[in-house]
Amino acid sequence: MELWIPITIAAAFMQNLRSALQKHLQGKLGTRGASFVRFGYGFPLAILYVLVLHWIVGLPFPTLNGTFAFWAVIGGLAQIYATMLLVYLFSLRNFAVGTAYSKTEPVQAAIFGFVLLGEHITFGAVIAIIVGVIGVMLISVARAPLSWRNTFAALTSRTALIGIASGAVFGVSAVAYRSASLSLDGPGPIMNAAVTLACVTTFQTAFMLVWMLWKDKNEIVQVLKSWRSSSLVGIAGVLGSACWFTAMSLQQVAYVRALGQIELVFTFMASYFLFHERVNRTEVAGCLLIVCGILGLLFW
């Protein structure tokens, strides 16, 4: 098994855990506060990860450059807004459906990867990704009779558009992070990914702190008061991001993000067991299609 596969599965699991914790915090902290904790409580661990790789493992620091800074800022800003859209989406639909809407990202990431990086994927991989997206579409109309009219209405609703926009911005973020990591002349993908993660999360924390000070200083107070729950979001977030960054340094973004759709399996489990949300047969069928798309991607 190629190394990027288990790393991506681990990333999907940690991302699901982080999202579940953010959904729990959204009611207490609001959309911006619940989004901030991912970065604010995560960046010290990201820096520590780099230092461990340098001091204990013995990997040298890569040399930063202007191209890295450009893509790191683009990716960091995109991830902030994509996270806020996703957290807001949790307040509109249940956890599983909210997450599912954002899973159009692999197709969008493939398009962005093709346009920005000139990456190519095989015909079989394209079919597998489309199967996964059909699964997402099926989930989106699971609460209404299946018809072309209902499908169109579901996919053009405010909720769906927010979810698809979240997926698009996450796609931009993923491509930007891969570009930033690949621009580093470092000892290898693990250190390059770690440095990218540390730089980006530090920038994101500073950016959101300034934003929160400008908009509502009380949000920072609430974030500090909820440090127990918030720190768990940061830990899950930075571990997931470390896995994502490493996987995307080893493999094309479209493949990593497509395999990352296995997160929906974890999502449905969390939706049912943690949030006690009902899942119907159509939603299960959509989830199975997504899994088939993942398997197709791996074997094609």
Rank of each mutant, 00 (worst) to 15 (best):
M1F: 10
L3K: 06
P6I: 12
T8V: 12
I9D: 01
L17I: 13
Q22G: 06
H24R: 14
G30E: 11
A34V: 12
F36P: 00
Y41T: 01
G42C: 06
L45M: 14
A46P: 09
A46K: 12
L48V: 15
Y49L: 14
L51M: 13
W55Y: 14
W55H: 10
G58P: 10
P60T: 06
N65L: 12
T67Q: 13
A69L: 15
F70A: 12
A78S: 14
I80N: 05
I80M: 13
Y88T: 09
L92M: 15
R93H: 04
N94F: 07
N94A: 03
A96T: 07
A100K: 05
K103E: 05
T104N: 07
E105F: 05
Q108W: 05
A110P: 06
L117P: 03
I129S: 08
V133Y: 07
I134C: 06
M137S: 09
R143L: 06
A144L: 07
P145M: 07
N150Q: 06
L155M: 15
I164P: 11
S166N: 04
G167P: 06
A168K: 03
A168F: 15
V175Y: 06
A176P: 04
Y177D: 00
L182A: 11
L182G: 00
S183N: 05
G188K: 13
M191K: 05
M191T: 11
N192E: 09
A194S: 15
L197G: 00
A198K: 09
A198N: 09
W211V: 13
V221I: 15
S226D: 09
S229W: 12
L232D: 00
V233K: 01
A236Y: 00
V238W: 04
L239K: 03
G240S: 12
G240N: 10
S241Q: 09
A242S: 14
F245T: 09
M248F: 00
S249M: 05
Q252E: 14
Y255R: 03
V256T: 14
L259S: 02
Q261R: 12
E263Y: 08
L264Q: 03
M269W: 13
A270P: 01
L274H: 07
H276V: 07
E277M: 08
V284H: 03
G286R: 06
G286D: 03
L289F: 15
G296P: 08
